[in-house]
Computed example of a mutant assay.
Amino acid sequence: MNAEVRVVPAKGGSPSTLFHGTLARLCSRRFVSNYLSTLAFIGLSYWIITALSNFHRSMLQGQWQLGMFGIDVVITVHAVFVALIAIYAVILVPYYAAYPWMRSKAFTFAQGLWFALRRDRSNLRLSSLARQAGLALLLKFFFAPLMINWCLIHIANLTGSLLQLIAGSGDSLSARELFDTALFWAAFQLILFVDTLLFTIGYIIELPALGNRIRSVDPTFFGWFICLACYPPFNDLTLRFLEWQSSDFPQFSNDFLHLAINSAVLVALALFSWASIALGFKASNLTNRGIVTHGPYAFVRHPGYAAKNLAWWLGALPILGATLAAGHWRAFAYSLIALFGWTAIYALRALTEERHLLLIDNGYAQYAQKVRWRFVPGLW
């Protein structure tokens, strides 16, 4: 569902004609309303994040100390946010000038809200376009800052791991010591950085040329509920019922088993990141931005969820093995219930996403018939 009306501009013309045409676009009511409404949304979001949300305020206090090659600079998450907002405000000018037919989501929602208030304040009913625009804005407001923060964390950790890897290569470290201290973590952070970078771009950039315009956002409460249950700060509540059992880096006394299991964790996370790479600039939660059928999506419909859960189950092997060997059946059962609980949450996320994608005729039904398996080929 697009909140836009297309008016195809005439092509060609002299440089003078093109200049005056561009100037006319910049002065048009459509451009001004698009630009100012989007800036107003960004400003309102920034105020909420910095003044009202304790979660976001703590997130913005993060720092990255760049101390290499003779450079000693401290970069704060807050400073990065401010810089990105400034860059975004500049880029919006040629963006809206290049697409004069476009109606921004902020303007669509504000206009729909205004019409609804004028019509009946006691029974506020937004049009379908305005509701979808509002959901898209809410989606960007929640996920964009979170993904930007995670990107910075992965960059900082990746830099530290690479420096440690370089330093460790010159020392007389065993294969396991080098793997444990640097190699695993460098690969781990690189894989997750690729994933979060693509989702960050997906949330903040929509371009017709990239084919990643948001067609619709999941309109159901349960779809949002089951998705947000996996992300901070909401997952704090989820973790009260399903205590986390997995480790990013499971430890085993046997060197071969240790290297094999942790290499398998990296392979699972690489498959997870491959799914994000296949999505490309369409990567985002709760949205319909077109159907992707290549890469791992040619084999299963939810490869990212399957791979992430595989990594979690591998990471839980030490605690499962320890409780089972010690005969702590209650602890073993609790760990299994928690792991199955998180797997069930992601199964529900997959089902709600499919329900959303089937709301309109966009080819997903045909794709589901061709790719029968949701998570594991031949099983489910």
Rank of each mutant, 00 (worst) to 15 (best):
V376Y: 00
L210K: 03
Y35R: 09
D236A: 15
R213H: 04
R121G: 01
F252V: 03
T38V: 05
A326P: 13
F69T: 08
Y46C: 11
A133K: 05
A83F: 06
I201R: 07
A182R: 00
T38Q: 14
W274L: 09
L126I: 01
G211C: 02
I155R: 04
A116Q: 05
R57I: 08
R289P: 03
Q366L: 10
I191H: 02
L173P: 07
V5R: 12
F281Q: 10
I42R: 03
Q65L: 13
L351C: 02
L237H: 04
T159Q: 13
S127F: 10
F332N: 06
D180Y: 04
R6P: 11
L237V: 11
L178Y: 15
R215D: 12
G363W: 07
Q111G: 00
L135N: 09
L138K: 09
L379K: 07
I148S: 02
S335R: 05
A97S: 08
L113M: 07
N212Q: 04
V32I: 15
R118V: 09
I153W: 05
L286H: 00
F41K: 06
F299I: 15
I166G: 13
S128W: 12
H328N: 15
R121V: 10
L359V: 07
N34D: 09
W244F: 13
L39P: 11
L138G: 15
I166C: 13
L239Q: 09
T238Q: 03
V77I: 03
L152R: 03
I204A: 07
L379I: 14
L178D: 04
N2M: 06
G327A: 11
A156D: 08
I85W: 12
N123S: 14
H56P: 12
S247N: 14
A79M: 06
P303T: 09
A3K: 02
G290K: 01
I191D: 04
K11N: 04
Q111V: 06
F188Q: 01
A260W: 08
R374S: 06
V300R: 05
D195C: 02
Q164T: 13
A167C: 07
F193L: 11
G62D: 02
T323A: 15
P100M: 04
K370G: 00
S53V: 09
A187P: 02
L26Y: 12
L139G: 10
I48V: 10
G211W: 00
T50C: 12
E206C: 08
L359A: 13
S174D: 10
T293E: 11
D180S: 01
A268L: 11
R118Y: 00
F19P: 01
W47Y: 13
A347W: 06
S122Y: 06
Y231D: 11
F340L: 15
G202P: 04
K282Y: 05
L239I: 14
F332S: 13
S169H: 14
G134Y: 07
S216I: 03
F299L: 15
A10K: 14
F252H: 06
L279M: 14
D248M: 14
I214D: 03
I85E: 10
W244Y: 14
N157T: 05
L44M: 10
M68C: 12
L117R: 03
Q164K: 13
G168W: 06
F225D: 09
F184Q: 01
M102D: 02
G160A: 09
